[in-house]
Structure formats: structure tokens, C-alpha cells
Design a protein around this nucleic acid. Structure first.
Length: 792
RNA sequence: GCCUAGGUGGCGGAACUGGCAUACGCAUGGGACUUAAAAUCCCAGGCCCGCAAGGGAUUGAGGGUUCGAUUCCCUCCCUAGGCACCA
């Protein structure tokens, strides 16, 4: 029996001492592979069984790549700043720096116990001043070019966590960390201008080797619509209201207008008679949460302003309403309502008895009241009879201008919490807003503050930190007291990994050129939008700012290939959670079965990207298999060379390439089941193939075979294509498409030969007795099928 | 409501380009070894009928294309994930 407790540790220590997985200093550009896992958030709970799933997959790939002669960068680090770490520290009554360090140590030990081949000299930690110095430096670069800006805006506020949140962090109107209903607050906050990149973030995705589902999600989040902006004059006034519409072809059907309650013309155009009603409505909608305003029952409410606008096409006055079904944050915050051809406008028109005018011909068999499809125009003056798409371009040209609109909004990055990178900006009484000079970086987090959330950043309570002199004029000044969103830290860590110890720049152009882009990126699908969108934005922006070697990237994209691992569920098929009591602790599994069994079981469970339930019984099978491997060598029976090993080389190589690790494990089992003896060379080849999956036990057996050098330094076996072609194949006999038997024939036999052979078979004869064969289907080396005359 | 992925034995899952459905593993039953148990090894079945040889049914449901469909097409049901008054 393989004594995993003792041997696993022995080999892990040896590998580390010998620096077996050190990254090559000067990788060959044509033979480099940057294989990356999304770095973990070192929570207080420690590693769960979900983490090693992706880590093992990339470890197998990294190990195989090294054996194939590639120069591999495979690093690990910690996404250590942020709200959960701070909340955990508050709960434990310690400083986040202390609890984070403890959590990292625990994570590192756990990861090391799995025998993953990371180069630990590349480790990064986002809460280290040597790291966040460069986070702040990047902030200043973005600021310099106007990509970071401060503005007063209505922002998402979590009352429990006492901080603002980005749109991407609000899920169904609730905080994605604590689930509390998010409210709106008007605050002056820092934003990154990700909207400048909306078109490129959308278009550049095409060439990426990413899961389609992730691409779709990003596409929907960016939300591109083509349409027009059209201005409407307010009757008896110089004021104009501009709207965005994707259906300018329905302009003649616009029978009223709606402004968002927050629209800046509301006060001005409200007539005296309507003032009271409008104010009541404004008050009411302000109190509504985002959730109430949007989701659930979509009962629309609104109020008439008393004013009218002129429809530029019909030149008729149409009433202007306000309603909170129109969002201030999208388009111009105002719409032209076409109730005949828009569901929402129709509902509203029916409720408030507003005119409905049809301008698109409804198909004859169409039964619904609202027709939102395309068709021929009617009731539309000179445009009548045009097709909708044609009318769209004409009406846009005649009454407005074409406009592309995105749902994506700028990224709100300020946070009113302690545990994050301070924003490197100073407010001087005389000079105004001043960026911290590069030479003064990092702006270190003060330690003399009570960091509990109060709604205001705790950093204002540190006198040394908050009150400073202006770096420009020397007058009294105050530092920005907010910290940056954790997602800022993680938007560039993959660049730092190429050159983590550099104290001159965030990473040298040379190292970035050598290693970027990431060839293989593995992580959970929960980052589909947040991290992956932000990281793409950062890479593109830094590239445009001249901070990255452009030629190293295609379209400024950081991750060429992306794959997600599915969730590992509890035994009951439900998501693992403490409250459900179905959490599996990897430490216990490793202690009982060993690292190799754990790794292989996680790969064997099913396709990497699928969600699948954990079953401790299942790991028994993998452990039994590894024991058989171990015993095979102990009781080695010298046998013949086996050409089937070439089929196995082919199978394992292609399965790793396609990341079908579950079938690779099955193939290992099958091969051993079928080969009770083999020659020495076949056995060594088998061990080499197995090495990336079970690095400890194969290393142990390799040493026992008398090799001085690690098996992980061996070259990956190459298969001989001539040896994977069978001389004999199994032919299937079907009658009327039903399989009635099978037999072995030599490769390339003719139809006649097969038929003769088949006809001598008793069972087949019985089936064909007294029937007339109408047709024979013959697929060489595969099958013969007899079609019989049907009995009537 | 919209978008995406999926539905195969008691369970996790496999199946190339339309060609032996259920590989591999778990669990189950039987046997070997053992004083015994565990561990290990061997064999078997998988839904229905049959002692057996064998036959029939079967990949969420229904229909279609085909000599032949888990695979392609249509309709529907269910599950998971995402988006959700975006004009």
C-alpha cells in the first residue's frame, strides 16, 4: 500500500527544495504557456472542495506542458483586500491585516498539501503595499487621461455594509455580499470610464476562446442598441426634450412623452395646476427602492406635467408625463411613447386613457393588441408604405441623428470602507484636486483608526493620514478618505505575476511581452461579468495609455482561452453551505485518501464545467485504482510490449487538450484492467502519462524503478500513428436497423465477404428465414444492415 | 417574459462526423481467500417476459426525417444559471 501521509509530504518537500517548478527566466516566445487560476479570496473558512477542482485541472495542463517542453508560468496569489475580509476581522475582533495573514497561511498550506505545481516565488498579495502601490499608480494613470473621474451621482448604497456598490455588485436590487436591499444615495464618487470601451469590449470578444455562455452574459451586460436621438419642442417654449428610440420608424405613432422623475426639466415644465400632484409623485418614487421600481409586478404609475410637446413628424401637441418606468440612467431619461407598438407604453396608455395610434401594418393573422414587429408603415405622411427598416433610416436623417446606446454604465470604484487601497488624491484648499505624486506612492493604509463601518470612510479619523500638506503649494489639504473596490486590485494581478518583485514598475515591459497574454485562464462562472469585464477594460486602457507592449496582445485582450469549472454540490445535490451542514472539508479527504486520490476523484466526477454532487463513496474507487497501480509494480509481471499503449498516449494527450479529464481517468483504469502484465517500457510510459494526474504516487514508483531524476522532468510520450490502427475491426450486423450480432473481421473486407460470413450465422439465418432482402447497407469496417420487405 | 446550458440504469457519468446505448466508477447480488471480519481478487445482473438460449422495451414527453437517431428538425414539459420596464 502507498503510505500517502508520509510519502506525499516527502515528495512535496523535495520538489520545493529542488525548485522543480521554477519558472524559466527567459522563456522562448514560441514555447511559452501562461496558465492561470483565478486567485482566491482567502476567507476565514479555508479552502473548500470547489477550489481544487479548477486548480487540479490547470495543474495537469501545466505539468503536461512542461513535459512537452514548454516554458510554463503557473503562479498563485491572494485577492486579499475587501469587504468580506474586513467583516471577518471585525467579527473575530482582530485587525484585518492579522486575520488576512492567517487566512493566507492556511490557504497556502492547504494548497501545498495537494501537490500543485505553482512557482511560489511568484506569489502576490493585493493587500501588500508593494502591490497596492501599483494599483494606486494605475489609478493615477487613468486619472491623468480622464479615464478616472469624480462626479456627483445617484449611486447604489448598502445600508448594512455602509458603502456604495458598483452596478455589477447589485443582484436583484440587493447587495451581492450581504443581501441587504440597496438604496439610492446622491454622493460624489470616483468612476472609471469603462463606457468609453463599450464598443471594443463587445466587438473584441468574437475571437476569444471563451465559453459562449460567458460571452453572451457580457454581451447582454454591455447591451448595445442602435437607434436615434430625436428632439421634441415643448409647446410655447424654447425648451427641447431629447429622446432615444430604437424605433424612429414609429415616430408618427408617438402620442405622448414620458420623462423619468429625475429628469432635469421636470420642475420647469410642470404647470401650476399640476405642481402638487407631481411633487407627491416625486416624493413617492424617491422612497421606492430600486427593486420596487423595477421588478415584480410591473404596474406602471405616472403623473401628467400639464405641458405638451410637439411631435416633430405630425406637428401635433402630445402630453408630457412623468413615470418611473422610464429610467433616468438610460438614454436621455426621456422617451417618446408609441402605445400601438410598445408593450409598456400600451399598458400605460390604457391605464391613463391616452391616445393609441397605429403606424405599422399588423399582419392579418396577428391577434394581440400591441404589434411590436416590423412591417409596412401606415398613417405616416410621406413615409407611408415604406418598410420599417427603410423608414428608420429616413426618419432618423430627417428628424434626428443616429445613436448607439449601451446599458453598460461607468464603474463606480470608491468604497467607504477601511480594508482597501486608498485613493491617491489630495484636496487642497487652494489648488483643488491634486493627484498624489508618483514618488509619494504607496499611500499606505493608516493603522491608527477604528475601522468599523460608519457610513463615512474610517480613514477620515486618522489625523496623520487625512490632514496633509498640498504637494503643490504646501497649504493645508485633505486626503481622499475612500478606498478602492477590491475588483480594482484583481483587474491587473495577472500582469504583476509576470514580474512580481519589480520595485521600479508594475511589471517590466520585457516580462509582460514574454508571458502575456494568459494562454489558459480557469475559474468560476460567478466572475462572468465583474472581474472578467473589468480585467479586459484595464488591459485595453493600459495598452492605450502606453503602459503595455501593444504587440504582445491581440486587440488588447488579456485572456486568450477561458474555461469555467462547475460548482461542486453537497451530497444532497444542494449548494454547499455552512447552514445546510453539507460542506466537505478537503483537509479531511486528503488526510484519509491522499492528495492523488483527491485530485483524481475531482477530475473523475464528471465534466469540468458541469455542476456535480460530491460523493465520498466515489473517491473509494479512485483510491482502489491507485492502489492497484502501486501493487502492479510490487508484483510486476514482465509481459510483452503492448501497442495499445500508443492508443492510450493518444487518448490521454487529446483528453488533456480538450480538458476531458473524466474520460482520461477512465482510460487509465481501463488500460490497467485489460493489461495484467506488460513490459518495462510500457509500464514506464503508463506512469509518465499518469504523472500529471497523480504526481506523488507516480514519482514514488518512478524512484523505485531506479531513476534519479524526477518523473516530472521526463518528456511526454509521443505516440506512433501506425501503431494505433487496428488490423481487425468489429463489424455490426443489423436487420431492419436492429443490431442482431457482431463479429471480428480483417480491416478492409468487402461487402461480399462479409455477407457470406454473416449468412452462415445460425441466429442471423433465423432472422432472415423466409424474408426477402430489399436492400443492403454496407459501411466499410463498421456495419452491414439488411432491409427486408415488409409483410402486409 | 427574454437569453444560455442541460434532461441517459439505484447513483456520478460515457458514446467520434447519424452506425453495438449505458464505457469507467459507486452501490447491489454471488463466489474465492480468511477461524471470522475488514481489505483484496474473480464473476454477474441492470426495465419487462423467460430455467435458459433468447425476445421485447428504453436516452424528459409527443411527432418528423432516415436503412438506422442519445446525436438532425418541429412542438411541449422540467431543471440549473444569467438578464429583466434598457425605450
Amino acid at each position: 500500500m502507498y503510505e500517502h501521509k508520509e510519502r506525499d509530504k516527502y515528495w512535496q518537500d523535495k520538489w520545493e527544495a529542488e525548485k522543480l517548478y521554477a519558472t524559466p527566466e527567459n522563456p522562448d516566445a514560441t514555447k511559452k504557456k501562461y496558465i492561470l487560476d483565478m486567485f482566491p479570496y482567502p476567507s476565514g473558512a479555508g479552502l473548500h472542495v470547489g477550489h481544487p477542482e479548477g486548480y487540479t485541472a490547470t495543474d495537469i495542463i501545466s505539468r503536461q506542458m512542461r513535459m512537452l517542453g514548454f516554458d510554463v508560468l503557473h503562479p498563485m496569489g491572494w485577492d486579499a483586500f475587501g469587504l468580506p475580509a474586513e467583516n471577518y476581522a471585525i467579527k473575530m475582533g482582530v485587525h484585518p491585516q492579522e486575520s488576512t495573514a492567517q487566512n493566507i497561511n492556511r490557504f497556502r498550506e492547504q494548497i501545498k498539501s495537494l501537490g500543485l505545481s505553482y512557482d511560489w516565488s511568484k506569489e502576490v498579495n493585493t493587500s501588500d503595499p508593494e502591490y497596492y502601490k501599483w494599483t494606486q499608480w494605475i489609478f493615477l494613470k487613468l486619472y491623468e487621461k480622464g479615464l478616472a473621474y469624480k462626479k456627483e451621482a445617484s449611486v447604489n448604497w448598502c445600508p448594512k455594509d455602509q458603502t456604495v456598490l458598483a452596478n455589477e455588485q447589485v443582484i436583484d436590487g440587493a447587495c451581492d455580499r450581504c443581501g441587504t436591499q440597496v438604496t439610492q444615495k446622491k454622493l460624489s464618487q470616483w468612476f472609471f470610464k469603462i463606457t468609453d470601451y463599450a464598443d471594443r469590449l463587445l466587438a473584441d470578444m468574437e475571437v476569444l476562446d471563451w465559453p459562449d455562455s460567458i460571452k453572451h452574459m457580457q454581451k447582454n451586460w454591455i447591451g448595445r442598441s442602435e437607434g436615434a436621438r430625436i428632439k421634441f419642442y415643448v409647446q410655447d417654449s424654447d425648451q427641447q426634450i431629447e429622446v432615444f428610440t430604437t424605433r424612429p420608424d414609429t415616430l408618427f405613432g408617438a402620442t405622448y412623452m414620458v420623462l423619468a422623475p429625475e429628469h432635469n426639466l421636470v420642475a420647469e415644465i410642470t404647470t401650476d395646476e399640476q405642481k402638487e400632484k407631481i411633487n407627491t409623485y416625486l416624493e413617492a418614487s424617491k422612497k421606492k427602492s430600486e427593486l420596487e421600481r423595477t421588478a415584480l409586478e410591473k404596474d406602471k404609475t405616472g403623473e401628467f406635467t400639464g405641458s405638451f410637446a410637439i411631435n416633430p413628424a405630425t406637428e401635433q401637441p402630445i402630453p408630457i408625463w412623468i413615470a418611473d418606468y422610464v429610467l433616468a440612467t438610460y438614454g436621455t431619461g426621456a422617451i417618446m411613447a408609441v402605445p400601438a407598438h410598445d408593450e409598456r407604453d400600451y399598458q400605460f396608455a390604457v391605464k391613463y386613457d391616452l391616445a393609441v395610434k397605429q403606424v405599422i401594418k399588423t399582419p392579418i393573422d396577428y391577434k394581440e393588441e400591441v404589434f411590436t414587429g416590423e412591417g409596412q408603415l401606415i398613417n405616416s405622411g410621406e413615409y407611408t408604405n415604406l418598410d420599417a427598416s427603410e423608414a428608420r433610416s429616413h426618419i432618423t436623417a430627417d428628424f434626428g441623428r443616429a445613436q448607439v446606446q449601451y446599458k453598460l454604465r461607468d464603474w463606480l470604484v470608491s468604497r467607504q470602507r477601511y480594508w482597501g487601497a486608498p485613493i491617491p488624491i489630495i484636496y487642497c484648499e487652494r489648488c483643488g484636486m491634486i493627484p498624489v505624486p508618483e514618488s509619494d506612492l504607496p499611500v499606505k493604509l493608516p493603522t491608527d483608526v477604528d475601522f468599523k463601518p460608519t457610513g463615512e470612510s474610517p480613514l477620515v479619523y486618522s489625523n496623520d493620514f487625512h490632514n496633509v500638506v498640498c504637494p503643490k503649494c504646501g497649504s493645508h489639504a485633505k486626503r481622499d478618505s475612500d478606498t478602492m473596490d477590491t475588483f480594482v486590485d484583481s483587474s491587473w494581478y495577472f500582469l504583476r505575476f509576470t514580474d512580481p518583485q519589480n520595485d521600479k514598475v508594475f511589471a517590466s515591459q520585457d516580462q509582460i511581452s514574454k508571458w502575456m497574454p494568459v494562454d489558459m485562464y480557469q475559474g468560476g462562472a460567478e466572475h462572468a461579468i465583474l472581474h472578467l469585464l473589468y480585467a479586459r477594460f484595464f488591459t485595453k486602457a493600459l495598452s492605450d495609455l502606453g503602459c503595455l507592449p501593444k504587440e504582445a496582445f491581440v486587440n488588447g485582450e488579456p485572456f486568450t482561452k477561458l474555461r469555467n469549472q462547475g460548482l461542486i454540490l453537497g451530497l444532497n445535490g444542494e449548494r454547499m453551505s455552512k447552514s445546510k451542514g453539507n460542506v466537505v472539508n478537503p483537509d479531511e479527504v486528503v488526510a484519509e485518501f491522499g492528495a492523488d486520490s483527491f485530485r483524481m476523484y475531482e477530475m473523475f466526477m464528471g465534466p469540468l464545467e458541469d455542476a456535480k454532487p460530491w460523493n465520498t463513496q466515489g473517491i473509494v474507487g479512485v483510491r482502489r485504482f491507485l492502489d492497484r497501480v502501486f501493487k502492479f509494480q510490487e508484483n510486476f509481471v514482465e509481459g510483452q510490449g503492448n501497442a495499445n499503449i500508443h492508443k492510450l498516449i493518444k487518448k490521454i494527450s487529446s483528453d488533456i487538450q480538450d480538458m476531458k479529464f473524466n474520460t482520461a481517468v477512465a482510460a487509465f483504469m481501463e488500460f490497467l484492467n485489460e493489461n495484467q502484465s506488460m513490459d518495462n517500457q510500457t509500464w514506464e510510459t503508463y506512469l509518465k502519462l499518469l504523472a500529471p494526474f497523480a504526481p506523488h504516487i507516480t514519482e514514488d514508483l518512478w524512484a523505485k524503478l531506479g531513476h534519479d531524476q524526477s518523473i516530472h522532468k521526463e518528456a511526454w510520450p509521443i505516440f506512433d500513428p501506425s501503431l494505433v490502427i487496428d488490423s481487425e475491426v468489429t463489424m455490426v450486423v443489423q436487420i431492419m436497423g436492429k443490431t442482431r450480432g457482431s463479429f471480428k473481421v480483417a480491416l478492409g473486407v468487402t461487402q461480399e465477404e462479409v455477407k457470406t460470413k454473416v449468412m452462415s450465422d445460425e441466429l442471423i439465418k433465423k432472422h432472415l428465414e423466409g424474408k426477402e432482402i430489399v436492400k443492403e447497407i454496407f459501411i466499410p469496417d463498421k456495419l452491414i444492415n439488411f432491409v427486408l420487405k415488409s409483410e402486409e
